[in-house]
Design a protein around this nucleic acid. Sequence first.
DNA 1: GTAGGGTTAG
Length: 757
Amino acid sequence: MQSSAMLMPISRTHFVRTLKIFCKYYSSILNKNAISTMASSTSLSYTSRDLDPPFFIGETCKSMDQLKQIHCRTIKIGLTKQPIFLNKIISFCCINESGDMDHALKLFNQIPEPKSVFHWNTMIKGYSRIDRPKHGISMYLDMLKRNVKPDNFTFPFLLKGFNRNVGFSCGKELHGHVVKFGFASNAFVQNALIHMYSLCGQMEIARAVFDISCKMDVITWNVILTGYNRVKQYDETSKLFREMEKNGLIPTSVTLVSLLSACSKLRDLEIGKRVHKHIKKCEIEPNLILENALMDLYAACGEMDVAVGIFDGMKTRDVISWTTIVSGFVNKGEIELARNYFDQMPERDNVSWTAMIDGYIRVNCFKEALVLFRQMQASNIRPDEFTVVSILTACAHLGALQIGEWIKAYIDRNKVKNDVFVGNALIDMYFKCGSVAKAQRVFSEMPRRDKFTWTAMIVGLAINGHGEEALGMFSEMLRASIKPDEITYIGVLCACTHAGMVDEGRKCFASMTTEHGVEPNVAHYGCIVDLLGRAGHLQEACDVIKNMPMKPNSIVWGALLGGCRVHKDVEIAEMAAKQILELDPENGAVYVLLCNIYASCKRWDSLHELRESMMDRGIKKTPGCSLIEMNGVVHEFVAGDRSHPQSKEIYLKLDNMTSDLKLAGYSPDTSEVFLDIAEEDKESTLYWHSEKLALAFGMISSGPGVTIRIVKNLRMCVDCHRVAKLVSTLYDREVIVRDRTRFHHFRLGLCSCKDYW
DNA sequence: GTAGGGTTAG
């Protein structure tokens, strides 16, 4: 035991009162002299503050330090010989929040055999408290070995510490012991069993235990309701609640919280409002958790006025109350209001930070999301699996591979729960940063895969130019008995499109209904029109549109227009553009595409007319914009941009590069420039394209041989594509450009898209 | 002498 001088002081009153309690209960074993000796022999410093009326060590002691001081004194006067005193100390170590289980075990081992089941139970409870279920189990086995029989307390203590890792097999075996020792009809034990099974995700077995229980206990119902909430079967929660009412049980506030939580997830405002009325009518004391749950219901259903009303009326608020309001506004896309509340929060935890980061992602403000993430780290709040999924999503959109890699390392280093969501987000991030091999590696290491995992692989491989492998993945997915859904088929059709596999695409489109019962929706028709159009089967694409069972939307017509651009078909293009503008008159991209087509077909009159009508209507081209990440910072360029601090060097580099390329035989491709200007000016327009600026910046900011990765918001133009190919061979640099629809991996003068995009 | 089961936010 440490010397008392090293320990935190306890008050004299505190110490004496603790001893007096013992005196009161065990006066026969203590003499008054011993007490006064103990009291006066203490050399500790005292404080004069009042303490709560103490009853036992467990309630008077505030910490292990205080406990050790008392223990130290009692050793001096020989009190520890009394088993009752030892029990108290062990109980404290096991039950108290600051209790020390190593210390408890040392004292436990000092108790002479045979130890009572009470002692064993206390130790088991302690191990559950500190989340060491395995220690609890070995305690229990040890107890059986010494022929001590468990009682009705043993199993609830033991089971409480169980989690998914200790597993379901162990829980099932223990269930056998429960039956064998005759506690199967004990309500406490039943509740603990239901809880354990639902923690392991075994709701069917949990339900079986529930069904044979006497169902007289509200808590049994509460356990099963939370179980269904945990596995996200919210409709079952709602159903069981109605059954509970039928059985005449009075819900507690815990029941109502569970029900409200389910209503919130189901967006069931009607039942939710009934609960709210019930709370008011029955004058149920609105505790903090219940108010938070009510607020969440209204926030989830978009009724922010009501949610804020509850928030304003709350006597006390915790971090959850604030976060609920923040995420309520996030859900409505009201990012500024969300941020306003976020900034006012008295404290923020990882959930609040993640909610706000997620808010920026939902409104496509990915850079803002990363900025907030840096602030979160600066505040020493640890990211968890939700946070990393959000940040990886932002990285995927921005093509920020370095930050993404950093997150991957963080996950491995800090043992962030690497669940299927995290795996899927990593796969998506790697693919959208053009890192095919790394995405495949994450996939191969995933212990569990869901249909999102497979879909991410199919789409990822497809956009990176590995169409055949993408279809291979699809077959593998079917072999693994994962049922494809409509999203999977979008991926499959997209794979066929990028690889130009027209026959495969037609077959897949036909088999989705016949073999997997997935009815094609308008998006699938968009894919098949894209597939046919790009491959030059424009008439067939038109026929598909004519015969589709629903009204084609602007995306379907847009796909046809895209095909017309590749194959320079002015007639069909004009028809498609007309259809789009009827559906979506403000669609600037359509004008631009049609301009491109007129320019490349040299239809100058039509081009001129279209340009005029664009100006009249005030329609502007979406400015091209390229992102490049350098040392964890994302740089953004728009065409003709001179705002970058290294702008001078960038343009100088671009000059040099262009000279080099011209020597190597490059001539600018101005065919798609539709501005009514002189030929030299067309060249300089091309020359300012944002991806060229980003490319030049990449060249001057990274060492030789380093891969340059660029993300572009629009489709790459023919000229930039040509330049990137030449750069990749002339300077021996791999260049990866992600455009609006796919990747271009430039290596040794060739592109992975095989010039098909 | 003594210890047991349930709840909210991303």
